[in-house]
Computed example of a mutant assay.
Amino acid sequence: MKKQGYIQGQADCTLFTKFSHDGKVVVLIVYVDDIVLTGDDTVEMARVKEKLAVDFEIKDLGFMRYFLGMEIARSKNGIVVSQQKYIIDLLKETGMSGCRPADTPMDPNAKLWGEGNVSVDTGRYQRLVGKLIYLSHTRPDIAFSVSVVSRFMHSPFEEHLEAVYRILRYLKGNPGKGLFFKKTSEKNVSIFTDADWAGSVTDRRSTSGYCTYVWGNLVTWKSKKQGVVARSSAVGRV
């Protein structure tokens, strides 16, 4: 790909991009034996596919509809990325297909400690939380709650597992929800951030989070426990 004039990503070595003189771009990413190719330079996309077909045995599957557990749907208004099948399979695996849905991914009054009365299977807990972490790629609405339950991966108790089940019950309510990338004339970037104040009952540390919108579309988000104890909730401005 480098010989074809593509630039290899520094954070992800499987990502390659190429910009043309007229401002068009082509993006190519490789995952094992699958390749995703996108961009607005149709001429370059056709050329690189022909070049790859000469060097490798490939098959063009057309527009992407399903990739790594993610479902992609297109319309004239934009693109929707969801993980509905992944969620339904997870509910079947955990025996929660018939559970009653929850309105929120976490009880707002719940305070999880690092200890409990009854311990649970660590391996099973880690597998469940790991799958929820992967679901966070298209479900930013569970990012905070998944961040909380992931703190107890090494020594989970029954209270922590109940919090995981609460997230699954919330997902049961709307398994088809996902990300919508709309066509828009907006050209701005917006960033929102917030933090709870000493939310951890164990060490009094806060959990902060942020989300970034580019041209009106959500592109990045994160929820993470702070590394130090905050002495104030005031936000400085530079």
Rank of each mutant, 00 (worst) to 15 (best):
M1P: 07
M1D: 00
K3A: 05
K3V: 04
Q4W: 04
G5Y: 02
I7K: 06
G9H: 06
Q10Y: 09
Q10T: 13
A11M: 06
D12W: 03
T14C: 14
F16S: 00
K18C: 01
F19E: 09
H21T: 13
H21Y: 09
G23W: 07
K24E: 12
V27H: 03
V30I: 15
V30L: 15
Y31G: 02
V32M: 11
V32Y: 10
D33K: 06
D33A: 03
I35Y: 02
D40E: 09
T42D: 14
V43L: 14
E44K: 01
E44W: 01
M45D: 07
M45T: 08
A46Y: 05
V48T: 08
E50V: 02
K51N: 05
A53W: 01
V54M: 12
D55P: 00
F56L: 04
E57A: 10
K59H: 10
D60N: 11
F63T: 14
M70N: 03
M70P: 13
I72A: 09
R74C: 06
I79H: 04
Q83G: 10
Q83F: 13
Q83I: 07
Q84M: 15
Q84W: 10
K85F: 08
Y86E: 08
L90D: 07
L90P: 11
L91A: 09
S97R: 02
G98D: 15
C99Y: 04
R100L: 12
P101Q: 09
D103G: 13
T104K: 07
P105Q: 12
M106D: 11
D107C: 12
P108N: 10
P108E: 11
P108D: 07
N109F: 14
A110T: 15
G114S: 12
G114K: 07
E115L: 02
E115P: 01
S119W: 00
V120R: 00
D121S: 09
T122K: 14
T122V: 13
R124E: 13
Q126K: 13
V129N: 01
G130K: 01
G130R: 04
K131C: 15
L132F: 10
L132I: 12
H137K: 04
R139N: 05
D141R: 00
I142T: 04
I142M: 03
S145K: 00
V146M: 05
V149Y: 00
S155Q: 08
S155T: 07
F157T: 01
F157R: 00
H160N: 00
A163L: 01
Y165P: 03
I167F: 01
Y170P: 08
L171D: 02
G173P: 03
G173A: 10
N174T: 13
N174E: 10
N174Q: 10
G178I: 02
G178S: 07
L179I: 05
K182V: 05
K183Q: 09
K183I: 15
T184A: 12
K187G: 08
D194K: 11
A195H: 09
D196L: 04
W197T: 11
V201A: 13
V201F: 04
V201T: 12
D203G: 03
D203V: 05
R205C: 07
T207A: 04
C211K: 02
C211N: 07
T212W: 03
T212P: 06
Y213C: 13
G216R: 05
N217A: 07
N217V: 12
L218E: 15
V219Q: 01
K222L: 15
V228N: 03
V235G: 01
G236T: 12
G236C: 12
R237C: 15
